[in-house]
């Protein structure tokens, strides 16, 4: 595993030290730069076209358009810098998320540890099959247009009611590793949960292969799926509007 997994236990507070701080640094590949300019121009165009009709989304589209163009022209992507990914060199994406669950720590830990529970609320997981105490088999589908992915993972480190660390095993299509930690929140406010997750699609950032469609999309999907954990365990369901009526139907 080439990614940051071992470092996660060190709690350095910073995931990436390799990015130079100068924000003119080129971290976007050439094909991607062309795509950015084209995509940016489209957003800008469609944004400006609808100003009269819906100024607010129009302006945000236009701003997005400018940002993409800037990224293409300068070869620097502020988004990559934010998530700590360098699209020109490495494809690992690291996600860190913190939230507090209004439930006792043992209950929260147990719920997560029973990995088969995860697809109940992580919408993009099709299934998790626990093979034995250590190994499990995962199936996920991130969007309609991309193939389903599956991989095997192993629990590599755990302490009851405190943390669970996992990693995909050698040869997975999606290399990933993560750790979730559980701590008592002060004043009886439940359990503080910290999730660190890192993945690597293999084969390039925004500019190449499947991963081209994926990188920013998957990050949001994973963040939502992690949030769903809190929503499901507290409220018993994940809020949704999928399937409700609108004038668009």
């Amino acid at each position: 595993m080439a990614i940051i997994y071992p470092d996660m236990y060190k709690n350095t507070g910073k995931d990436h030290t390799r990015m130079p701080k100068k924000s003119t640094y080129i971290n976007v590949k050439t094909t991607e730069r062309i795509l950015s300019v084209a995509g940016g121009a489209f957003l800008l165009y469609s944004g400006l076209r609808s100003v009269g009709r819906n100024p607010v989304t129009a302006i945000s589209k236009a701003v997005g358009g400018f940002a993409l163009i800037a990224r293409g022209v300068s070869g620097h992507c502020p988004v990559y810098e934010q998530i700590g990914t360098d699209g020109a060199k490495s494809e690992a994406v690291n996600i860190k998320q913190y939230f507090t669950v209004n439930k006792p720590r043992a209950e929260v830990y147990q719920f997560w540890r029973k990995l088969e529970n995860l697809p109940l609320f992580m919408r993009h997981l099709e299934s998790v099959e626990q093979k034995d105490e250590k190994y499990s088999h995962w199936k996920a589908k991130f969007s309609k247009n991309t193939p389903a992915l599956s991989w095997n993972a192993a629990i590599v480190k755990e302490r009851e009611n405190e943390f669970i660390g996992w990693s995909s095993v050698e040869g997975s299509t999606i290399n990933n590793a993560g750790k979730v930690e559980f701590r008592d929140a002060p004043g009886g406010r439940g359990t503080e949960v910290q999730v660190v997750f890192s993945y690597n699609m293999g084969g390039g950032g925004l500019g190449s292969g499947v991963a081209k469609l994926f990188t920013p999309l998957v990050e949001n999907i994973i963040r939502e799926d992690v949030r769903n954990f809190k929503q499901y365990i507290e409220a018993g369901e994940v809020p949704t509007i999928a399937g409700q009526p609108s004038g668009r139907d």
Partner: peptide, 11 residues
């Protein structure tokens, strides 16, 4: 039009 993120067709 002062609250962003409305979509055409929203009830």
């Amino acid at each position: 039009g002062f609250v962003p993120t409305m979509r055409e067709g929203d009830i």
